[in-house]
Each structure stands twice: as structure tokens, then as C-alpha cells.
Design a protein around this nucleic acid. Structure first.
Lengths: 242, 242
DNA sequence: CGCGCGCTTGATCGATCTCAAAGGTGGTGG
DNA sequence: CCACCACCTTTGAGATCGATCAAGCGCGCG
């Protein structure tokens, strides 16, 4: 990673960590046509039902993918960090089945679908890396089904925090020791299928249990191993670089 | 579909429905090396932590994909029907992060990963179809996160039934009018994040509400539209052939 | 200075779980 | 052919986790 991240820097280092990209592949990604843009907190990046012609790459800031039930209840199904492609699936599934929005101010880059399509056609390694990335996303969704379906509130929140921290660390954003959470308690509630009120109480209990320390949205974890154990967290499902 | 389904019949018609496979592509799938096998109910097809060398294609019968929390609580994350590839992801993610087991007696076919790898390398259309299939799986996982996170017990069970019925119908197995469920109430509980006892009561209530009629595991739905509405079910996320 | 959003806390309610037990049903072996 | 066994379904009673309703607080921003 360079000190001044070029637009594709984090994406390339992520793909590199998990696949076999040669210099040609990297070059092909770097010359992808792209349009830099800025999103406000709560800005919509992908809208349910849309047929996007561009793919959104998150450069800086954080985003959440969410679905809404007919009665209006909202469920966040994943969080995204810099370097994540937010809707690569629209290469093959034209119509969006969910929303993606920035949860902080964010910098993104829009890449024409057509360019990505020809990229993966001409560079099979890149196609494989993208595919693999999509499969990791799917693995994370499965873990979330387990999280929301079979873990109690406190463990569930702890698990969500573990995942977020582990992914941020792998992406070189923050350390397990001390991290600034980008999400409000409302957003944690929507991600865990709980009520913001209950999230608040559980965060208090996690603090009382000395598993975390909090200062606003800044979180400190003194015993990272112990916290993972308490959360029932096993990073295998993230399929990080072996 | 032929009257005597050849091993790849259902898979090919599924891929055909959603992509553009030419005759060469179909031929390439049909000549895939494969090993026919039989699995008992509850037989393990993929085991968490394994590094499978073959990919499992479900020919007949039903299967469930599940994960287990550290405290032993189990969550089913998807159901599978004939024509589904059960672990295509191991093309790119060597180590299984979950279990797959037959929930009825089942017929499967094992295909060497290497053969699949060269198939997608030589036939880009097939690769795209597989990729698309994986993305639909991911979309279903997202819907399950919403289902388990934000719907009440009765709606949640109804939604799960809707999805199963819709997928069976699309695959040409059964009709919405009348369908035999392959799963026990225990399995419905594990899929919905509920208790089997509560599943039983909710099934009773769905019956009392005249949304379904039951005769053992045989279910009849008189008003399919009305049932979908009651379940908050919108099939868009299945991304069926446009 | 005031307003809005997010955080915090208390009190009560209710959906779902847990514990307990009985009744079916289909398959298997004697 | 029957008897048993394993597994599944059903029902009741009581406990509990997390939701809902209701306020108040603090801080950043216009």
C-alpha cells in the first residue's frame, strides 16, 4: 500500500492477498475507467430495484447493505470497508435486490459495468479473484444468518464487532486494540436484528464484563483473544489469505 | 426435461433458464466425469473444515446447508433441491466453512473439481452461469438474514415455505397448490432460528388462519397469492429467469 | 441559543423459550 | 405378523429475553 492510496490501491492489495494476480492483471485494473465521487453519510449508493450501469468501489469511509421487510423493518446484511466492491453482482444479476448506503461520509469510485465485463473476459485471473471475493461475501452472509438466528443478544453484538474489527485489521484500517466504530447503535441494532435500546444495554454489559472499553464510538479491546472467545468468533469463514 | 432425467438434466435446464448456454456448452457439461452416489437421510455431504476434491450435485432428494455455533446451536442457512450444486464455492475457497447434509434419502453425483475448473476455463458461458448461480445463492442468504432478523415467527415460517415452494415450482418439482415438505419441524426450527415447539404452534396458527392446510408433511395452499402476501414474500430476490 | 440526533435509563409487556410429558408413525427385527 | 424402537408431532405451564413505551440527557451544528 502506498502512502497516498490511489483509487484502486486497497482493492488491488485485497485481491492480491487472496489470489494470483500478475503485473499485467494489476495494470489492467489500474487503467479501468472510473469516476470519483463523494457520498454523504446516509447517501444511497445502490437502490433496491435499480439496474445499475456502473459498479461502486468504496475508497474511503464505510457502507451498509440492507433490506427492508414489507412492514418497513430494516435489516443490515453486511458492512463494507474501503477496498470493497459494493455491487459487483450486478454484472450477472441486473436488478438490485437491496440497498447500499454510506454510513459515514465516503469516497467512492464508479466503474462502468461494461469495462468490468471486458476486464474479466480478458483477464481470467481477475475474474477468478472477483468470483472468490463474491464467495467470501456469501460466506459472511451465512455467518450472519447463524449470528442473527442462533446467538443471544450480547454474543451477537460481540460477534458483529469481532468481524468488523478483523476485517478492518486485514484491510489495514485500525487495530484490534483500539478502533473507531463508524456505526450508530441504531445501525448495530439493524445489523443484529435487535432494538437500539437493547443494543445500548448489551454494550453496557460488555463494558461491565470488561470485554470492551468505550469512549463514545471509540472502542478498546484489551484481550482480543478473550473477546473473540466470548463472541464465539472463528475467523475461518472470512477465508483470509491462507 | 426428459422423462428419465439424466444426471445433469435439472442442472442444465436451470442454467439454461438463466443464461445463454449454446449446444457446445451443454455438451461440455454432459460429458463431465461424474460418480453417482446415494446418500441416506441425514447423510453428510460436505463437512465443515474439509477440503473437498469433488463437487456435489444434487440429483434427487433434498439437502440442507448448516452452521453450528460454539455452544452447539445449529442454524440451517439454505435448503437445496434437485439440480443444485452444493459446493461449487470450493473451486475458489478450498476449505468448507459449513456442513451440508441430505435431509431425505438423496441421489447425488460427485464431479472432480479439476474437471469443473477446466470446464469454466474453456467455456466462459458456463463459468458465467455458475457465477450467476452463486450470486443467486448469496441473494438468498441475504433474504434469510432479513427473515431471521426482522420477521416474527409466523411470518418467518410462512416466508421460508414460500421460498421453498417457489423454488420447487421453478425447478419443476411440485406445485404451489400441494407440496410434500421434506423437512421435519426440527429442521424448520433450525432454518428459522426458532424452537421446534414454537414452529409447531405457528404451523397450527397458519392452519387456523386458513393460510395452509396440512396432512402430515403434505401442505396445501388454496390462495397462493394471499399466502405470499401474508409472508411478505416477493420472489424478486430469487432472480428467476427474466 | 435552540434544535435534532443519538445515547442512556426505567418500567412494563409479550413473544418465544424451556421444561415436561404424552401420543403418533414408520421401519426393523424377531 | 407383531412388537418394539427411534423419531417426530403435539400440548401444557411457567420462565425469560428482548421489545415497547416513556423520558431525560448531552453534544454538535446551524
Amino acid at each position: 500500500m502506498t502512502s497516498r492510496d490511489p483509487p484502486f490501491g486497497k482493492l488491488i492489495s485485497k485481491l492480491r492477498a487472496m489470489g494470483s494476480l500478475d503485473d499485467e492483471d494489476v495494470r489492467a485494473i489500474e487503467v479501468l475507467p472510473s469516476r470519483l465521487a463523494r457520498a454523504n453519510a446516509r447517501g444511497q449508493l445502490v437502490r433496491n430495484g435499480d439496474v445499475p450501469a456502473e459498479c461502486c468501489l468504496l475508497i474511503e469511509g464505510y457502507a451498509a447493505r440492507s433490506k427492508t421487510a414489507v412492514d418497513g423493518r430494516r435489516q443490515i446484511v453486511s458492512f463494507h470497508i474501503p477496498g470493497d466492491l459494493l455491487d459487483l453482482q450486478h454484472l450477472f444479476l441486473p436488478r438490485a435486490d437491496h440497498d447500499v448506503q454510506a454510513i459515514t461520509g465516503a469516497t467512492v469510485v464508479w466503474i462502468p459495468m461494461a469495462a468490468l465485463r471486458s476486464l474479466i473476459a480478458s483477464r481470467p485471473n481477475v475474474g477468478a479473484a472477483f468470483w472468490r471475493d463474491a464467495l467470501i461475501d456469501a460466506s459472511i452472509f451465512r455467518e450472519w444468518v447463524l449470528n442473527v438466528g442462533r446467538r443471544d443478544a450480547k454474543t451477537r453484538i460481540a460477534h458483529m464487532l469481532c468481524e468488523f474489527i478483523a476485517r478492518c485489521e486485514a484491510a489495514g484500517v485500525g487495530t484490534p486494540q483500539r478502533i473507531r466504530l463508524p456505526f450508530s447503535q441504531d445501525e448495530i441494532a439493524d445489523a443484529t436484528g435487535l432494538t437500539p435500546i437493547h443494543v445500548n444495554r448489551m454494550l453496557r454489559e460488555l463494558t461491565e464484563d470488561r470485554l470492551i472499553r468505550r469512549d463514545g464510538r471509540e472502542i478498546t479491546i484489551d484481550d482480543w483473544r478473550g473477546f473473540q472467545r466470548a463472541a464465539g468468533f472463528d475467523a475461518a469463514y472470512l477465508h483470509a489469505a491462507a
